[in-house]
């Protein structure tokens, strides 16, 4: 859906999109701690729109004829020609800003919804075996964050007991040092615990194979990054785009496969990819593809013009595509095992 959002600036479509996403979230949210952030993302979206509009009002050059009101204009030296602060505010300019802001906000909200719905731990568990070490590291890091917050709070509280409050300059020494030492102590304990529970048991694998795997995976991921950039950015030569992407993906897959062979670990109740998950993913894909197709067929409907002013139309194809996304709310199993991929 995020993909869909980036394709359009039509406000009606965007509002519909956000509603759909919101509905899916409301229907299939769990009680987990990460699931309470959706409101935050919504607020963030609003903030984006506001910022966009305010900046447009004050800074950017205005066009169009429907002047709403005038702001006091700040005379700038000639060197800054082309930049204007203040001046007339037009309906057209404002609308363009709102549309733009709305698009960005919808994108943020979609990503937010994905975050809210998917358990980050579960996502990690679905990672290929060769990335297991990375996964463990991320899991540990994820659990470290709340620990840091907790020990930070504890130390801040303890500071009050020594009667030291408000000396900002010494903050680092007073708060950060105890927190850091605490974190260090903890990580040593954790490392000892993991070691004694069999983490990193070697199963007689040659160092060369290990190095080859690492090189392939890292090189592959690098390739993928360059490739994606090349494909999306039109200014880079074509040669750098798709072929690089393909090579990167190939190298990464090769590395993962090679790495996967050496895994002698087993998984406890690995998450299974079941039909609701597939269906949910399909809903998201249909929305994205639908809007993509619509964009090439009828670009005007998706990007309504502000100059001259027209009331944005409601094209059929994209609307249907977005509504398909709403199906995810029904298809996904009710919470406890929440859907993971509706907002990709």
């Amino acid at each position: 859906m995020g993909v869909a959002a980036s394709r359009t600036t039509n406000p009606i479509l965007l509002c519909l999109l956000v509603t759909v996403v919101g509905m899916v979230v409301a229907a299939r949210r769990t009680d987990a701690p990460w699931a309470h952030g959706f409101r935050l993302y919504l607020t963030f979206g609003l903030v984006i729109i506001t910022f966009r509009v305010v900046f447009r009002m004050f800074l950017e050059g205005q066009y169009g004829t429907h002047v709403l009101f005038r702001l006091p204009e700040l005379p700038l030296p000639d060197a800054a020609a082309g930049i204007r602060i203040g001046g007339p505010v037009t309906l057209e300019g404002l609308l363009a800003a709102v549309y733009d802001g709305l698009r960005l906000a919808a994108l943020v909200i979609c990503v937010g919804a994905a975050n809210v719905l998917a358990d980050p731990k579960r996502l990690l568990r679905s990672m290929p075996g060769a990335l297991y070490e990375v996964g463990t590291a991320i899991t540990v890091a994820l659990s470290l964050a709340p620990q840091l917050v907790e020990s930070g709070r504890r130390v801040t509280r303890a500071r009050r007991l020594r009667g030291e409050v408000g000396r900002r300059t010494q903050w680092f020494r007073h708060i950060a040092i105890p927190v850091m030492t605490d974190a260090l102590d903890r990580s040593l304990l954790l490392a000892a615990a993991m070691d004694s529970r069999g983490y990193g048991r070697t199963v007689g694998l040659s160092a060369a194979t290990r190095r080859l795997t690492a090189a392939l995976v890292l090189g592959g991921l690098g390739g993928v990054c360059v490739g994606v950039y090349g494909t999306l950015d039109t200014t880079t030569p074509r040669a750098l785009g798709l072929p690089m992407l393909a090579a990167g993906v190939a190298a990464a897959i090769g590395g993962l496969a090679l790495g996967g062979r050496r895994i002698r670990r087993s998984r406890y109740r690995p998450p299974r990819w079941q039909w609701p998950d597939v269906a949910v993913a399909c809903c998201g894909a249909v929305t994205a593809v639908g809007l993509g197709v619509a964009a090439s067929v009828d670009p005007d409907a998706l990007n309504p013009s502000v100059q001259p002013l027209v009331w944005p139309s409601l094209p059929t194809l994209p609307t249907l595509a977005i509504l398909v996304g709403a199906l995810a709310a029904v298809i996904a199993p009710p919470p406890r095992r929440s859907s993971g991929s509706s907002a990709a």
Binding site: D185, R197, Y268
Partner: peptide
């Protein structure tokens, strides 16, 4: 300080996975 995962069941399974 010695827990690697964050849910009881996963923690019980962690050692065996290794």
């Amino acid at each position: 300080a010695g827990f690697v995962t964050d849910v009881v069941e996963d923690e019980l399974a962690y050692g065996m996975e290794q």
